[in-house]
Amino acid sequence: MANVLVNAPKTAKKGEIVEIKALIMHVMETGYRPGTNGRIIPRNIIGDFTATWNGREIFRMKMSPAIAANPFVSFAAIASESGTIAFRWSGDEGFVAEHQVSITVT
């Protein structure tokens, strides 16, 4: 399992705008760098990142090799209802990582 660090509030008032931060361990190898043998190291990046709130998509991002290693993304969301915020990263070489946090909205 990939190493993921997600930061989101555990509770929020309904209608409040919360900030969500997500970090994931990944090399984000660009596919443009030569390795020690002089040959290009094949591209290995995360291409897609999505966040859903109780199944509804709230954020989606398409990443390129220009996203830094160990990608960090932060965005905002309106606290709509209690439930789970789920995150999914996918990319080259069949890479998939999923993570969930729960949030109570009062």
């Binding site: 705008i17 709130w53 509804r56 991002m61 996203i67 965005f75 969301a77 309106i78 709509s80």
Partner: peptide
């Protein structure tokens, strides 16, 4: 649903 048009990376 985002409430604010913001992204940091």
């Amino acid at each position: 649903a985002n409430g604010r048009a913001f992204i940091a990376t």
